[in-house]
Structure formats: structure tokens, C-alpha cells
Simulated scan of single mutants.
Amino acid sequence: MKERLPCEFFLIRYVPDVVKGEFANIGVLLREAMPSSAGPTAPLIRFTRDWSRVRCIDASADIPLLEALEAEIAERLEMVARGTNPDTKPILQVLEDTLANSLQITEARACLAESLPAELEQLMRMYVEPLKVVADKSSRLRTGRAAITGAMRTEFERAGVWALMRKRIAASMYTAAGDPMKLDCGYRPNGVIRIFHAVSLEGDVEAAKVLAFTAPQLRDGVARVEQAKLEMTAIVEPIRLLAGEPEDEASEAYRFGVETMERQAIRVMTVNDLARIAETARVELRV
């Protein structure tokens, strides 16, 4: 039987009001308690992909900021572990310096792990992620842009490329000052920039129309600024999640949204294609 690794973990909590004392566990930091002779392994950090608990205690919570903070912390911990960061402060001090005022970290707790990634998944299920309730047939399937972005991130993380990708890319870099659009993620293999953006076709197709309108400006801007070709991919829900009958109003709107984007040379893929997309990214980024 494989010997288990002595580890310790810390819970990261969102605390919007210290006086009230309400909090929600949003993440886990896991590290080896006794680094091996081969050298230190970078600690692993993971934040939740389901922010419903945070929104329950703070409806105005800045979720994009919290998501960006996870990437920032992970990068700084990786640099400290590799010794490439001139800042010699201990890892916990780095974490505390990076955390926002509304976040707290708990005391260390011991655990034994078969591997750090597997243990991190287990700890997330135990302490952070909401309990999954089996839905009956009348329950509404979880769709919408939040579900799509969550699925995107999950698949890119599984492929090991999420940390290497650009996130929340400002369209204003390529279009015009004041453009508020933020594109979800992307990377640059060779002379092509691949950008992936979640577009929900549930309810209305305004997001699809906005992306289609912006695509030519983005393409010209990328050529001008990056001297590269832009390949834009919109990730949408499978049509079966939105429509009950083949020719109902939702189906017609869905097809309109897809065709609107495709006319502007935007490749449209569904969440079912994400595993293949992430595998391509893994090969192109040489992970």
C-alpha cells in the first residue's frame, strides 16, 4: 500500500461582516507538512466554483475579484516554492498579505494524503462545496453563463492549463477605451490567439449579439496590437438543456444566437466539447 503523505490544510473563509461573524468557506490551501528530500512541492490552492453560499450572505460580493484572487495567490505560492520570488517571507505570510480584508484563513489542520491533488478534491467536497441534492424531474436544470464559465474552468484545470491562461481579458485593449467587455480566458500558441467566452443562450440572445458586434473590432485590434490572428470561440449550453420541443420559441432563439455569432467567424461550441478543447490547449501549451 502506498505510503500516505503527512499534510496540513487551511480553510479560506469569506467574512463580509466581522461583527456579525457570518462566513462561508470558499477555498482550501493544502501543503506537505514535511517536504521531501527532492525539494519543496508548491502548495495547492482551490476556490469554490459555486458561489451561491457567498451570495446568500453578501448579495453584493465581487465574485470576479475573488476568482482573480485565487489565481494571484496560486502564482505567488508557486514562485515562493520555486525560489524565484525574491520575497523570502514564509508561505503563510505571503497568503495573508494577498488576502483581501474580507477573507480569513484558519489554523492548520493535519491530514494524510495519497496525493495532493486527490486530497484537495476530497477536502473541497468535505468543507467547501455545497451538498449536492438529487433533483426531481420538475427541478430546473442549472444553466446560464455562471454554469458555463464554471464548466470551462473545471475542464481547463483538469487539463493543467488554467494557470497558464490569461483570464478576464479586457476587450478595450483591442477595441476602444471604455469598452467594458471582459473576455473569459485565452492563450497564445504560435501566431494565433485563442479566446474562449461563455455565452448563455437561455432567455435571450443579447450576449450573442454583443459578442458578434464586437468580434470584427477584436479581430482587427488583435492583429494591430499583437500581430497575431484571433480565433474566437463561444461556449454555449447544448440546445437540449433549453428547449422542450424542436420548434419552440427557445429553440428558434438558440439557433438565431448561434447563427449570429457564426456569421462573424466566431466558432460556437457547447460545454460538451470542453474536454476536447482543453486537451488541445494542453498539447499546444506543452503541459
Rank of each mutant, 00 (worst) to 15 (best):
R53I: 00
K209D: 01
L211I: 01
R153S: 00
I266W: 04
C111T: 10
A108D: 09
G191L: 12
E245R: 15
N85Y: 10
K137R: 14
D179N: 08
A108S: 14
P90Q: 07
V210S: 08
A228W: 07
A74L: 11
I169F: 03
T106A: 05
I235H: 03
M232I: 02
E245D: 14
C7F: 10
S200T: 07
P43L: 01
T280H: 12
R55F: 10
V94F: 10
H197T: 02
Y174Q: 02
K2E: 12
F23V: 00
R46C: 03
G39L: 12
L164S: 11
I63L: 05
C56M: 15
V54Q: 06
H197W: 03
E22P: 00
E284R: 07
F10V: 04
L69G: 00
Q104R: 15
V283Q: 13
R194G: 03
V133E: 12
V205L: 08
V80D: 12
S172A: 15
S36Y: 14
I195G: 01
M269W: 04
E75C: 09
E8M: 12
K209R: 13
R76S: 02
T88L: 14
R109D: 12
M152N: 00
E206M: 15
R46D: 03
G39H: 11
R76K: 10
P6E: 02
V225Y: 11
V210T: 06
D273N: 10
S172R: 15
M181S: 09
R53A: 09
A176H: 15
L11S: 01
P90M: 09
A110N: 12
E32D: 08
E157M: 01
A59M: 14
R82C: 04
I63V: 11
R282H: 07
N190F: 14
A61M: 09
L274M: 00
V15L: 08
A42W: 12
V225I: 13
G27S: 06
L285G: 09
L77H: 00
L120R: 06
G203D: 02
E107D: 10
M173C: 11
G83L: 04
I266Y: 03
K229R: 15
T280Y: 09
L92A: 02
A100S: 13
G186H: 07
V133K: 13
A215D: 09
I91L: 15
N190M: 13
L92C: 05
A33W: 13
F23G: 00
A281T: 09
R224V: 07
D17F: 06
L116Q: 04
R158C: 05
R282C: 02
I26G: 00
R31C: 01
P246I: 09
E206N: 14
I169K: 03
P180R: 08
K2P: 13
R49D: 04
S172V: 09
A265V: 15
A113S: 08
V54M: 08
E202S: 12
V80M: 13
R142C: 04
A275D: 07
C56L: 15
